[in-house]
């Protein structure tokens, strides 16, 4: 057994960290709430190859594993990057039999979104707001088409949420229910990885502030009431990291474990990110409640992500059902 990233994955993570820190930021997420554009945006993500990480090499992608993608997604989550890598990960699964469409995904020439809910009026779906080509499940058919996009008023502008009604549709595959479910599980793992990056960043920012800020004559991080909040958030982040890595690994190396592992990771992500972002605001006190401070941008992401691709309750239920049905090998 060896449960750690390898050198290659550590290099990928370091490269992704440099890229995202240079091209996205909480400030851009704040600007997004006031009409600004998402950063780094689809074009920059396709230029650096992040839209095709799990697309096969034969279709112009990198042909790498979901774990490789997850370590990149974590770095994007740390700076609230948009659009999400959930969409390319999920679309790459759905387009496994469609090399031409997959090539358009990888090179950024087609702006995909994957729709949740009915193609005749979808639920708010990730990065649908600026997409032009939509993948949806129509009954048991996987379909692709154009659509009419209705954005909502965003709580977190970085998620690009919009409802879509397909105005054209072409069937890519019939009997696609299982493929669709697997793609959604992969998407849940990638969102959990982005949430891991965001939650980890919240703990770092909270710790840094608690090391400096003084109250009642000493630094607030020395008070157990503050210290233990941050520790609990950090312990949560460490549990989440383990579940995200395990789930991402399982997607390629042990697919039978993916449904349970993905549900566990997503349920954990919902709780851990909310806790970490809430802690970040609380540790900053009144400063953390201001528009100018970054804390609310992580908090917004946490409040939105916990509901996307299934909320905590849905995934806890899935974990229980799958475990009882024998998914842990018992």
């Amino acid at each position: 057994m060896n449960f750690d990233l390898d050198d290659d994955q550590r290099d990928i993570a370091a490269g992704a960290r440099d890229f995202f820190r240079g091209s996205a930021s909480p400030a851009a997420a704040r600007a997004g709430l006031e009409g600004g554009r998402p950063e780094p945006g689809r074009a920059a993500l396709s230029d650096i190859g992040f839209l095709g990480i799990t697309v096969p090499e034969s279709a112009g992608g990198a042909g790498r594993t979901l774990l490789d993608l997850a370590v990149v997604a974590e770095q994007g989550g740390a700076v609230l990057a948009a659009p999400s890598l959930v969409t390319p990960a999920r679309a790459a699964v759905l387009l496994a039999g469609e090399p031409e469409l997959a090539a358009g995904l990888a090179d950024g020439s087609t702006s995909f979104a994957v729709l949740d809910g009915s193609p005749d009026g979808s639920a708010p779906s990730v990065d649908a707001a600026d997409a032009t080509t939509f993948l949806a499940l129509d009954g048991e058919d996987l379909v692709v088409g154009a659509g009419e996009v209705v954005p909502g008023r965003p709580l977190d502008a970085t998620r690009g949420l919009a409802s879509v009604r397909l105005t054209s549709r072409r069937v890519l595959a019939t009997g696609a229910g299982e493929l669709w479910a697997r793609a959604r599980q992969v998407g849940a793992v990638v969102m959990a990885a982005e949430d891991l990056g965001g939650a980890d960043r919240c703990v770092q920012l909270g710790v840094a502030y608690a090391q400096e800020r003084e109250a009642f004559g000493r630094r607030i991080g020395s008070y157990q009431a503050v210290k233990h909040l941050l520790v609990d958030a950090w312990v949560g982040v460490e549990q989440l990291r383990s579940l995200v890595w395990w789930a991402a690994w399982a997607a390629d190396a042990n697919p039978g474990e993916l449904p349970l592992a993905a549900a566990a990771a997503k349920a954990c992500a919902a709780a851990v990110y909310e806790q970490a972002a809430g802690t970040l605001v609380q540790v900053h006190g009144g400063i953390g409640f201001t528009w100018e401070h970054d804390a609310h941008l992580f908090w917004r992401r946490a409040k939105v992500d916990r509901l996307l691709l299934g909320d905590e309750a849905e995934h806890l239920d899935a974990v229980a059902r799958l475990a009882v049905a024998g998914a842990l090998g018992t």
């Binding site: 549990q239 383990s242 579940l243 395990w246 566990a264 806890l316 974990v319 475990a323 842990l328």
Partner: peptide, 18 residues
């Protein structure tokens, strides 16, 4: 009960894999 079971399994797996 499934909520409680799922929550316990997630926590146990998180601790195990960590």
């Amino acid at each position: 009960a499934r909520q409680a079971v799922g929550r316990a399994v997630v926590a146990a797996l998180g601790a195990r894999y960590s």
